[in-house]
């Protein structure tokens, strides 16, 4: 039904000279570079949202539906820290320093919350079919979101719209565009890329350079064998879940500053879905895949966003592109870019 109705629209669009013009404009070096930078910034955000999810799934086989809620809580928590500490007189670099302090606070708090969730609730379900973990964590999102909504409303904030007060604690050099020769680049985009790279590097080093990372990799490979070799896999599970929750919180803290996202209750669903897409495109449970998936999705998002801002008027283009990549990936290669061959074990 939809196809014949769309065809004239598509044909008219192809005939428009706007497409050719748009392509020429798109290929101009300055535009290409700015799309590249935007794409990297988006990729950085996606990788931060998704890597906690992938760590948890890779080791434990639990698809954590509450991941988005943890991100949302992280955003609010970081917002609280910033709003309390920052006054109008606070200097630019002090604000940045406070932000890193907030990151530490958020990471610690969310790790604690994640640890409690794992020990108290999720541990009960390891011997049940994997669907029950989806169900449980889905129920947790309802509870967590509603609690946050109660608290936020109690303090007189609008839970659905972004928290402007927290957005305003950004240092000026992140809030404005920085010009670099002929280019004009958002300061925040650069900051996001740096933070994303740092996060990836930290997780990477943790997984490959530390003893605990070794345990995690061993547990992902074969939990029973790891247990037989004397590793307390139950404790590793708790630690990984706490870490994953902490990373989700850090991602939220970053989003708190980004005007496109901002701290709000719907942020939970807004981040959960792209995180799923990224993780599945990369291959559930592989960290390398998640980084690759985030790059693919980030670039596609930035490219289509540019097209919709400059050439076509379809507001749905970027979002649609992201989910079409997901469906296409699952049709062509269900295990994802770096996933292992046997799909459905979990």
């Amino acid at each position: 039904m939809t196809v014949p109705l769309l065809l004239p629209e598509l044909a008219a669009f192809a005939l428009q000279t706007g497409f050719v013009d748009g392509l020429g404009q798109f290929l101009r070096p300055t535009n290409l570079v700015s799309v590249l930078v935007e794409g990297l910034a988006k990729s950085a955000i996606y990788v931060m949202i998704a890597s906690g999810l992938t760590l948890i799934f890779g080791l434990m086989g639990v698809l954590n539906f509450a991941h988005g809620s943890l991100t949302m809580i992280g955003a609010y928590l970081a917002g609280v820290v910033m709003v309390v500490l920052v006054g109008s007189a606070t200097g630019q670099w002090t604000r940045l320093a406070y932000f890193f302090g907030a990151l530490v606070v958020v990471f610690a708090a969310l790790s604690l919350l994640g640890g409690i969730m794992e020990v108290g609730l999720i541990r009960e379900l390891y011997d049940r079919p994997p669907i029950y973990q989806i169900l449980l964590t889905f129920g947790l999102t309802l509870v967590l979101e509603e609690v946050v909504r109660i608290v936020v409303q109690f303090y007189g904030l609008q839970p659905i719209s972004e928290w402007q007060g927290a957005l305003g604690t950004k240092p000026a050099f992140l809030a404005t565009d920085q010009s670099l020769g002929p280019l004009s680049i958002r300061g925040l985009a650069v900051f996001e890329i740096l933070l994303g790279v740092a996060t990836v590097a930290a997780i990477w080093a943790f997984l490959t350079r530390t003893r605990y990372g070794l345990y995690i990799r061993a547990g992902s490979e074969d939990a029973e064998m790891a247990e037989a070799l004397g590793i307390d896999v139950r404790r590793v599970f708790t630690v990984v879940f706490a870490l994953g929750a902490g990373i989700a919180g850090v991602a939220g803290a970053l989003l708190m500053w980004d005007p496109v996202w901002g701290a709000s209750v719907p942020l939970a669903a807004e981040t959960l879905l792209p995180a799923f897409v990224v993780v599945i495109i990369g291959g559930l449970g592989t960290f390398r895949g998640t980084v690759a998936g985030a790059l693919v999705v980030g670039m596609a998002d930035a490219t289509t966003t540019w097209w919709f801002q400059n050439v076509v008027t379809w507001t749905w283009l970027p979002e649609m592109a992201v989910f079409l990549i997901l469906v296409g990936m699952l049709v062509v290669k269900p295990q994802g870019l770096y996933g292992v061959e046997e799909v459905g074990g979990h």
Partner: peptide
Amino acid sequence: RLTGVYFAMI
């Protein structure tokens, strides 16, 4: 063609 979590996701 997929099972479990993957089916839910697709």
